[in-house]
């Protein structure tokens, strides 16, 4: 056990918190997408750190999958942003609330 291992975990926790906070506070959908990327990276960091601690390559393999899912998510998310912006230029996340009770 090395002190730096705990450092990785603490770093990823802070990174995740920053991403979550940004997601909850910012209204620009593109920035929100970036915050999601921050959170995903925090999780990736944890995976690799744990893989290193356990001496297991699977931690890195999982990151590969996360990368793929993140790419797909960004692609679809950006598609939605573009589609929405066509109908309503300059829309923020708060403006898209047609489906409400």
């Amino acid at each position: 056990m090395r002190g730096i291992d705990a450092g990785y975990l603490v770093l990823s926790a802070i990174l995740f918190s920053i991403g979550a906070f940004g997601l909850l506070v910012r209204r620009n959908p593109l920035v929100m997408l970036m915050c999601v990327e921050l959170m995903l990276n925090a999780v990736n960091l944890t995976f690799v750190a744990f893989g290193m601690m356990l001496g297991d390559i699977a931690g890195q393999v999982i990151v590969m999958f996360v990368l793929v899912v993140a790419a797909a998510e960004v692609v679809v998310g950006l598609g939605i942003v573009v589609a929405v912006s066509r109908r309503k230029p300059g829309a923020t996340a708060d403006d898209i609330r047609v489906l409400r009770g």
Partner: peptide, 21 residues
């Protein structure tokens, strides 16, 4: 009850995310 509950279904994605948080 529906009136009370619809306050939560307000269409703000960030509110939903807050609930998840």
């Amino acid at each position: 009850m529906g009136q009370a509950l619809r306050q939560f279904q307000n269409g703000y994605v960030r509110r939903y995310a807050l609930a998840i948080g």
